[in-house]
Amino acid sequence: MKLPKTIPGRCEQGTFLAGIPRAGALRAGTLRAGALRAAVLLAAIVLAAFPAHSQAGDAPDGPAILLASTTSTENSGLFAHILPRFREDSGILVRVIALGTGQAIRLGMRGDADVLLVHHRPSEDRFMAEGHGAERRDVMYNDFVIAGPRHDPAGIRGMKDAAVALLKVARAGAEFVSRGDDSGTHKAELRLWEEGGLDPVKSSGKWYRETGSGMGATLNTAAAMGAYLLADRGTWLSFKNRKDLDLLVEGDPRMFNPYGVLVVNPARHPHVKSVEARVFMEWITGPRGREAISSFRLEGRQVFYPAAK
């Protein structure tokens, strides 16, 4: 960008404003070169320095793919642990967008991501059945937990049946905070309510509070309110603002939380980087990826377990 030679009005003003009485105020012909020129220069510098890789294409030093995933995996720090290893092995940079599972899947349907790592099997199967995905594989699993205020007004601490525990929370009229955002965790929570035979959404706005937000925001809300909630163990363990919340219910097999990896179908979306996406799928389900997932620790505990072969 060059400095503009003729700023509008610049050349003319000297002449046509010369005789104006208040010329002191109006003598724009001089332009007080400083301010405007400096502003243009600044804009030029900033625009010129824009990162060369400002396209969502490849990284400056190799190919890059876009992974749409869930807040639970990103917030826990799992990706920070495994993705550098993948890059070392493959030379491929993985860029992560953390959303709810529902949103991540819609991103894949629109062809805005190359590969998905999500956790809601029925949605994943629909994605495949409708032809949006080229391939799906099991990756890993962990589990959901029910957390709530330490003094536990509903008295569910240590229960083994999650559905009954939720019913007890409802009967006690204790506040429960739901994701309410169509995420994998939200869907898992709704299924537990369904098994207990109670529709909490009818009480939405009363004791049942839907935040419509990610896991972290919902945990912040529950911590501030002293409410119960369902959370994935990874986010729960990595969350730093638990305040008065305690882990109360765990270990119900229905709180099993499996993650799948899905490669977006290049036949449907020709621009997706399906070759690199497939390399990622092979790696994360292969020995190197399984080892990386197993070695991730939070507070000294393993959080994610590779899927059975």
Binding site: G9, Q13, L26, A28, L31, A35, L36
Partner: peptide
């Protein structure tokens, strides 16, 4: 048009 330019400059 010229007035616009002048006033923009004047009001900088």
């Amino acid at each position: 048009l010229r007035s616009v330019a002048t006033l923009l400059l004047e009001g900088r």
